[in-house]
């Protein structure tokens, strides 16, 4: 694959400033190692150019958006990884403990299921569909940050973490 997506330093700097501001406003922290962090952000911008979506730079994207929704940054695994390992899989987002230097950042295990397991999970969810709820409205859950809302359809953009409607799942 020829890599014609050269990203300028200015683009990376702008992205960094914007993301850092957003992260801090919503209780998240970017890795303080600015060089490492900017390398990751450059890679996300490269992936946006390559695939049309900002796939996780540390995972192999398929090029098919619907198969990779779970790994569009911020990925579905960021928050559980922050809870269990104090960092996301890439080391882009870190916990307060790492930010304050109380813990050290390290490479963590992959939480995303293997391609075979992802297929099984998808089929299991399909067979669960149709569970009748007595609530007046369905409850939608943002798979990235856990935000819940009871309304006919999920919001266009998550009001908490700003990911798109396609990242919501029917919760109840």
């Amino acid at each position: 694959m020829s890599d014609s997506f050269s990203i300028t330093d200015d683009e990376v700097d702008d992205y960094y400033e914007k993301l850092k501001k957003e992260a801090e406003a919503y209780g998240y922290h970017l890795n303080r190692d600015v060089e490492f962090t900017k390398d990751l952000l450059r890679s996300i911008l490269i992936n946006k150019g390559r695939y049309g979506y900002g796939a996780c730079p540390c995972r192999l994207a398929s090029g098919r958006r619907e198969e990779d929704l779970d790994i569009i940054c911020p990925c579905d695994y960021r928050d559980p990884d922050l809870s269990d390992y104090d960092a996301c899989y890439c080391g882009l987002y870190v916990s307060g403990a790492i930010l304050r230097g109380e813990k050290k950042l390290k490479s963590i295990p992959e939480r995303r299921p293997s391609p075979e397991d992802r297929k099984k999970i998808k089929n299991a969810i399909k067979s669960e569909a149709g569970v009748i709820s007595s609530l007046p409205l369905p409850v939608w859950r943002c798979k990235v940050c856990g935000y819940l809302c009871a309304r006919e359809e999920p919001p266009e953009i998550c009001p908490i973490c700003k990911v798109g409607r396609e990242r919501f799942e029917r919760f109840i």
Binding site: L40, S43, I44, N47, P57, C58, R59, L60, G91
Partner: peptide, 26 residues
């Protein structure tokens, strides 16, 4: 992966050790 930070760290480690190796950017 050509985009991955931890992959880069492994390559840097191998290169600091001065070892011969092969890699593939999948």
């Amino acid at each position: 992966l050509s985009t991955c930070g931890w992959c880069k760290k492994v390559r840097m480690l191998l290169e600091n050790l001065g070892l011969e190796y092969d890699y593939i950017y999948v």
